[in-house]
């Protein structure tokens, strides 16, 4: 029995077609069904991307327990053959969200009861533009990118920063959906400040102030030019 499965990718044309069906024609019915009949339109050739055959994402429990942290770490550790270029390919993530992890997607990002189902679908099931907001909003790609951007082999717990990042949804959004989150030093400095200063991380007003301050600081300084410690010192000075 095979112990790993090779992942597939949709063709570019099919991804465009699927997205248009939702955005232009408003066809959202398949997203309400347990087994939609997506076609397996995949290009010829191999992807050389693998997951263990028995790999499963943990299903969320209601709207309160998402298991994002557990899923982020397990997907990041188990997917083989991926790098940043491949991880920014909408064809891979669209296939995974529509075919391989469909049950998980339906549970984590259901369209039932959502005010704007088209918005939810385009946000979570597709990656319309190649930019950081899309990478960290897509239902599956976000899991890989969260762990990838915060995993640090030099720490006792290499996912220490991932845990801080995913401790509150607003912290995740505040760091990852802004350009400041794309630089490792800034990202690390922010997460360390949150970890070392519970008086900031536990109060919404305080961490919002922190993000605003870093944004303002980044407007005049070239923050990626500074070390993590230098960024932390400057940020602490102004908040």
């Amino acid at each position: 029995m095979k112990d790993k499965i090779e992942l597939k990718i949709f063709s570019n044309d099919y991804v465009d077609y699927l997205l248009k069906q939702v955005e232009v024609y408003g066809k959202v019915e398949p997203f309400y069904t347990e087994s939609p009949d997506w076609e397996e339109k995949t290009p010829r050739g191999r992807t050389n991307l693998f997951l263990p055959t028995d790999f499963k994402l943990k299903m969320p429990e209601g709207s309160q327990i998402s298991y994002d942290l557990e899923n982020s770490i397990s997907l990041y550790e188990k997917i083989v053959g991926i790098n940043e270029t491949i991880a920014s390919d909408p064809r891979l993530w669209t296939w995974l969200s529509h075919i391989y992890f469909w049950d998980y997607m339906r549970a984590r990002w259901p369209v039932e009861g959502v005010k704007n189902p088209i918005g939810r679908i385009t946000d979570r099931y597709y990656m319309k533009y190649l930019k950081l907001e899309s990478l960290v909003r897509h239902g599956i790609s976000r899991l890989w990118w969260y762990a990838h951007l915060t995993c640090d082999e030099n720490r006792d717990d290499k996912y220490e920063l991932t845990r801080i990042l995913l401790s509150k949804a607003d912290i995740t959004v505040g760091i990852m959906e802004r350009s400041l989150g794309s630089n490792k030093n800034i990202r690390t400095a922010l997460l360390e400040i949150l970890s070392e200063n519970p008086e900031i991380s536990e109060k919404e007003d305080e961490w919002r102030k922190l993000f605003i301050s870093v944004n303002l600081l980044g407007g005049v300084k070239n923050l990626p030019f500074l070390s993590v410690e230098e960024i932390k010192t400057k940020v602490i000075q102004i908040i």
């Binding site: 940043e84 794309s182 630089n183 490792k184």
Partner: peptide
């Protein structure tokens, strides 16, 4: 700076 791969280094 590459937005598609979240890469920003100086």
């Amino acid at each position: 700076y590459c937005r598609a791969t979240m890469y920003r280094e100086v």
